[in-house]
Write a protein that binds this DNA or RNA. Structure first.
Lengths: 220, 220
DNA sequence: TTAATCCTACGTAAAAACACTTATTTTTTA
DNA sequence: TAAAAAATAAGTGTTTTTACGTAGGATTAA
């Protein structure tokens, strides 16, 4: 006879965090942690080579080699029965949009309480998914709940003009100054900036600068 | 008769992480966790109002309100007997230089093993400090261990409030959102942002983001 | 040729950023 | 302990950004 415990896998690159969660989960009678992974690759390897599969995966989004977003995409496709709860430090709109799109069953910020984590796991096991109030609130703020996301991690293709404008934005020029340098109208610069905001899923120029640095469009 | 256990305080804003560490430490016979703080202020409050003081503090560097660096500065001045072990996600040179300069007794990356954590705590309790091989290796790479930091960037002293605002700006929050999180008026947030612009010699928030990244106030 | 993409540009309105000033509280220091 | 300095907080006014829509011309590919 098989165990009727909820089988859980953990994926997080921080061993201290992982072990900590492990002991928190271990205290619950109906939970059984069957695997720990330090990155997405380890997790995928386990799932493909092992017949004892988890019901639920607690997945950190930031991991080396294969991050949580990519791993979630793969797993939801190949193992649709496994439910994934995403773990992040920050509850940003773009993250949430992303994770829901690629099929995460729920969402936990790392400063959630252990009680909340355990509740979420039980809810996700019982139902198809569980979103807490905070997430629902953020979701309700979307104008276009599904369409309005472009992946934070996914490659974003910029046109050459957009790239030029982005570089100048990172040099702290405003629209008028950029327009002078590129010999175009400030309105056109605005248009390009707006495209950049949309494409990179940024809220403002702070987001554009971060994107530019992360994508090595500007080098520090 | 007093306990001869090692008294430990935890400071980390992520409750899940904190609780996890708590259970890891609790399994050790000679450890006793006497306090948990979600930010530096809570920790300082505890130390100043309570006579039962920890021997060792496990301190996350990234915390809201009062971060680990600032808290460490205060505590090493006011309570020189308390030894601080800094926790970070990344082992960068400037962090290590910083933490040693302000008096951290040791250093743990969050993907250390529980075994390593426990070993470090015991070492720090027995001796004045403990630096693992990784940290020593990084230290040995300094040409001028103390002086060689931040020669390129002029030293800009930010207040803790300014630092908080800057961190939130880098997370793409606007003044209203930042105000809500810090429980102050949006106008006050504007004031802090203006101080930041002046102090960092920036033209706009693009410049602030660049400054924050270059000075490791935010980490990519 | 039609479709698609890109660059260009404008209008309106709202939101946010930014500049400047003032006031209160806290900390330093003389 | 009083004065000075620094930090924090907040109001007023101007400029810039941002949202959203529209649209013509150039280039390229199906």
């Amino acid at each position: 006879m098989m165990s009727d415990k909820i089988k859980i896998a953990l994926a997080d690159d921080e061993e201290l965090f992982r072990k900590g969660i492990y002991f928190l989960l271990q205290r619950e009678q109906n939970f059984e942690v069957i695997f720990e992974a330090a990155n997405g690759n380890q997790l995928i390897d386990f799932l493909t080579t092992n017949s004892n599969r988890p019901d639920i995966i607690l997945m950190d989004l930031k991991m080396p080699l294969l991050n949580g977003v990519e791993a979630t995409k793969l797993i939801t496709q190949q193992f649709p029965n496994i439910k994934i709860i995403a773990l992040t430090s920050y509850n940003t709109k773009s993250f949430i949009a992303n994770m829901i799109e690629i099929g995460a069953a729920s969402f936990l910020v790392k400063n959630a309480s252990p009680k909340e984590m355990i509740f979420t796991i039980n809810e996700v096991y019982k139902k198809a998914f569980y979103y807490n109030e905070q997430v629902i609130k953020i979701l309700s703020e979307f104008k276009f709940p599904i369409e309005n996301r472009s992946d934070f991690f996914e490659k974003v293709e910029l046109t050459s003009r957009e790239r030029e404008v982005l570089e100048l934005i990172c040099q702290q020029f405003n629209s008028t100054e950029i327009a002078e340098q590129l010999f175009i109208s400030p309105r056109t610069v605005d248009t390009h900036r707006n495209s950049l905001l949309f494409k990179t899923n940024s809220q403002n120029i702070a987001g554009l600068v971060l994107f530019a640095i992360q994508n090595k469009i500007v080098i520090l």
